[in-house]
Amino acid sequence: MRKALGAAGLLVGAGLAIAIASPHFMTAFNLENLLRRSSLFGILGIGATFVIVTGGIDLSIGSIVCLVGVLTPWLLVEQGVDPWIGVLGLLGVSLLLGTLHGVLITRLRLQPFLVTLCGLLVYRGLARGITGDQTQGFVGGFRGLRQLGNGRIPIPGIEGFTIPVPFLVLVVVAIGAALLLGRTVWGRYLLAIGRNETAVRYSGIDADRVKILAYTLCGFLSGLGGLLFTLDVGSAQPVDFGNFYELYAIAAAVIGGCSLRGGEGTILGVLLGAAVMQVLQNGITLIDAIPNNVEFAVIGTVILIGVVTDESVRRVIARRRPEGRGSIP
């Protein structure tokens, strides 16, 4: 919870600084866009969180985003597949890819880094191969379906600001994820595995199944994210669609309080982390004094400062209180 507070502080601080530096920040149009982008990355971040709390990592998120993002318009427009079948089929594929990662990691005892690194390479290669590297788009069609990504819902009584549909999707996903992590047996197991997998096994718990669940959820949420991204933008280039998105998702989880050693993390924190990432990116675009091409450097520096501060605070607290790390109620 403390780390989520830190992320909230960072979000407010960065927001205020950018609002002062640029008059365009606090406009309804910009905030709406920010909310949409944060929601999309929040979905990916939640997926990454499930894997990270078990002490694992998923590097394939961006490539699954690309695979689903590129193949959705390819199936629907080029191949003329029924939208229901196409969309549900691709979501199913992304889910199964996650399961495959989990099975390889638990049954063959391969390292998560390695398995998902291969996933990163394979899925992007597949997406590029299948489409012949051609940009795929909806060419103005499928307006109903695309509402899922770019739709806006007016708030009664408020003019000018509308709620982006991906935000509603995120709310549903986040509530589900928070309940899973906080209120179910699976959530207890996920967190305990991140702290000591051996002790979990020795407690008579099928740790492998729990880990497979984590990778499956991550795969599915990557696919869902990819779908919403492509519906929002309207077209996708196989070469760079979803590039680095796994790193954004992991960074969001870490800013939001996940420990890469596992055993720690909250859904609220990850959502705030995803928002921090988007606000920083937005600020760099809006503030003229900062050239756009230093974007990565700025984001990297801010995250680094954040985790260093957090670690220092943690040490001071640990010296005062010999209590359990993040006690679960």
């Binding site: 209120r183 179910t184 047996v185 699976w186 959530g187 207890r188 197991y189 305990a192 702290r195 000591n196 002790a199 979990v200 020795y202 407690s203 008579g204 718990i205 055993g263 209590e323 359990g324 790390r325 006690s327 679960i328």
Partner: peptide, 26 residues
Amino acid sequence: GLVLEGTIHENLALPGWRRTSRRGWV
């Protein structure tokens, strides 16, 4: 035997979560 970073309660409850849950809800 133990999740050392976890609290006493988390350790004592770990093998029993199945039993102290209803359809997966703890």
